Computed example of a mutant assay.
Amino acid sequence: MNITPSPMRVVVSLDVEEEGLFSGRYAADGCGVRNVALLERLAPLSDELGFPLTLFCAHTVLTDTAACRVLERLRDRHGAEIAAHLHHWSTPPLDGPVVSGEPPRTHTLPRDLLRRRLATLLEAGRVFNGAPLTSFRMGRWDLKNSVRPLLAEQGVTLDSSVCPLRQHAGGPDHFLAPADPYWVDGATPDGTPLLEAPITQLPLLRPLPALWRALVRDIPRRDAFHFWGALSANPFWHGPRVMRAAARLHHARGGKVLSIFWHSSELMPGGSPQTPDQRAADAHYEKIFAFFRWLRDHLPTQGVTAAELRAEAPRMAFPHRPDGPGDW
């Protein structure tokens, strides 16, 4: 793929997963994945606007026959990348179902159990895709530094588990993570280094995150910064004006990669609080397409999948992980 050095790269990714998560139910089995069929409605993002999809798929999706038929069409006809998304609570081997409440954080699981679940997910992806999956995102942004080496040893070359300006009680601290990609410690068995490609979340003012982190010790209050002091182009977090402002600001600050995400079930009527019915779902699609038409017409951009970004990364002069506290 011939990509010029100047446009801001745009990665459009979805967490493609089972239904019920927005109700707080983390079931180990019996999970519906009907929402996957709705993703074909997004094909014009790639075909007409030039923004291919990166589909981070959970094990429940990669092992469902009907869902795999949809993924196959999106990959073969519309240029989507099939990537890996670990929901460890529903990925074998299971040591008992989790039917309610939050699952344990990944860094608290026995290391060998987490390694085996990750291997199960990636093997399901390899069987479906006919080739290894090399891009990865951990469910619930639940990635600490201590877990990251497992990714590289399994052949992952790009991770997108970091959401800047977020810190979760008992979980990872990604609060001071940069908005643009950076190299992290770890390499695959063949020596390929691991690239961290965060979701793009920007502070309104550059000094605010460090100041807020220093002043606010209570983690829930610190994480609340995400709701008032941050901008993103995520269509389920912000409205059109903020999405456009985030894209403009990131470009103005020299951002090289605009990374946008949402969940597959957020587009399903009844799948999330923001999508109670078909009318709401249609409005979301309209909002998404309107934003990407605006993005194509108003900023110099180049749509890429996560794997395409990783292939070009050595030429993009990304830094190594900057100094700073946290698990990013």
Rank of each mutant, 00 (worst) to 15 (best):
E266V: 08
F22D: 08
L114V: 11
L121D: 07
V156C: 06
Y182Q: 00
R241K: 13
F291H: 01
E308W: 00
S100I: 08
H250C: 09
T134W: 07
T108A: 12
R34I: 04
G186I: 04
P207C: 12
E153D: 07
I3T: 03
C57V: 05
D185K: 12
R148D: 00
L122T: 07
M138A: 15
V11A: 01
L231W: 14
R117A: 01
D277P: 09
E312N: 02
F225Q: 04
A252R: 15
H284T: 05
G191N: 02
H250D: 08
G139S: 13
G96M: 12
R206L: 11
L211F: 11
L121H: 10
R148M: 10
T120Y: 10
R9V: 01
A131E: 06
L205K: 06
V33K: 02
A233P: 02
S259L: 00
G171L: 10
R126M: 05
Q302H: 15
D29Y: 04
S135M: 10
P198V: 01
R253W: 15
T157K: 09
R41D: 02
L53P: 14
F236V: 08
D15A: 13
F175E: 05
V10I: 10
Q167H: 10
E72Y: 02
A307C: 09
G155V: 06
V70E: 05
G270N: 10
L215V: 12
L118Q: 09
V36K: 12
T200C: 12
D223A: 11
F289V: 04
P7T: 07
D159L: 06
A80W: 03
R115L: 10
L205A: 14
Q201F: 14
T4H: 09
P189S: 05
L231V: 06
Y182V: 02
P209S: 11
L151Q: 12
A306T: 00
V242Y: 04
T275F: 13
H87V: 11
T134Q: 13
H168M: 06
P209T: 07
T65R: 13
H251D: 03
F318P: 07
P240V: 08
H250S: 15
L202I: 10
V162D: 09
T305S: 04
V70A: 09
G24R: 08
W328C: 09
N35C: 11
I82E: 03
L208S: 06
L215K: 13
P276N: 09
S259H: 03
E48V: 13
R9E: 01
P325G: 08
L176W: 05
G171C: 10
W294E: 06
R73A: 12
D76A: 13
S161C: 08
A169L: 14
V147P: 03
P44T: 01
E81D: 04
C31F: 00
H59K: 14
R253Y: 03
A67T: 05
